[in-house]
Design a protein around this nucleic acid. Sequence first.
DNA 1: ATCCGCAAGTGGTCTGACCACGCTGTATAT
DNA 2: ATATACAGCGTGGTCAGACCACTTGCGGAT
Lengths: 206, 206
Amino acid sequence: MNSEAVSKKIYIEIVKKIRKMIDEDGLKPGDKIPSERELSERLQVGRSSVREALRAIELLGLIETRRGEGTFLRDARGNQMVQLLSTFILQDQKAVKDLKDTIQFIEMDCLRVILQRNNDEGIHHYRQTVEMLDDVSDDEFFLKMVELTDNHLLYRIWVVLNDFYRSLDLKKETSSKPAYLAVLDALMNGEEKEVIEKYKKLRKLL
Amino acid sequence: MNSEAVSKKIYIEIVKKIRKMIDEDGLKPGDKIPSERELSERLQVGRSSVREALRAIELLGLIETRRGEGTFLRDARGNQMVQLLSTFILQDQKAVKDLKDTIQFIEMDCLRVILQRNNDEGIHHYRQTVEMLDDVSDDEFFLKMVELTDNHLLYRIWVVLNDFYRSLDLKKETSSKPAYLAVLDALMNGEEKEVIEKYKKLRKLL
DNA sequence: ATCCGCAAGTGGTCTGACCACGCTGTATAT
DNA sequence: ATATACAGCGTGGTCAGACCACTTGCGGAT
């Protein structure tokens, strides 16, 4: 029963098998995955090991467990991760500044990518959307912006950090529509310096 | 936020208590933390719950478990996280490109920060170090660079992503010393455009 | 003094049990 | 016939105890 060479932790293997299972069964966000007991039986491992694996996947924000109902796939958004990060990483004021800085670095990176891609139609379409809406929050504006960048990893990082930042109850500054439009216009104009300038104005960094 | 919420999972609470314990006892990297059985008894919870908490902390790269020895604090570097990320996020080639891009975005952000800080002495000192060493790897060069940025969060993210990227066995390109020096010189010169240009040359992006 | 082996301690895993909660089908009341 | 209440079942959450695998260190044998 115990083949050698398997000194690795079981739960890591289980994570991989569950991932494979999700792939093969073509499960999508919202779908239910097998119960802990069924996984335990199908994979021939103890339920506690299955739970350790699920905990890890949950930490990555990929599943959600609901007592009495089951375990479900979710559209990856950091959740537990945020809680734990806040427990460990947020120990001094410097950390908050680092967090804020990092979020803004990513946002500027996104702007640069969008600028370089030179996708005027996409930007124009987005500008129209913004113009129509009555109130736009910074979150919405940049979420869309980061999505436009089409870098899933960067998107994930930004979402986690932004959720985290919002979870601290600092004053949430919201900018005005003209500030958003100014950034978008600068993007269409095509001057990096101007884009960054408008961005910093929006974020009140000047 | 701090309301009852009795429905919270025990293991989250345990994580917080362990963190507090580490603080109060003044434990440092390398130190041993109490055994699972002792934690279980001291916190009056089941050992399996303690294990789920330790798994979470391990995922964050903050502890290391050694069978037969115990559990030890470590100098936070993403480890298990990397393995799990690779299991889940690395599903297509696009993901690899996103990863590479993201690493490079962060590196450029660091360069911009260093540039703005205008810390000539620090850069000069670093330049001397590089000049003396016989061979410098990209990893070493940028690790130092990200450290210089003095943003612990950004540092952590970079380390995780970079470890991850290195763990895929793609060809590891190493640049020549002149390329490093060119970036450093550009930093001292103070022109952002030139810094980015030298960086891209180093990364062979031109 | 050196070496070896065994006991103790630790993490890794499994099993079985019980609780808390959500859902659903059925029996009951209207 | 319809609406409501409730009990049973399946699920995740937690606990206790038992082994196993591995490391260390102590004590006895040489």
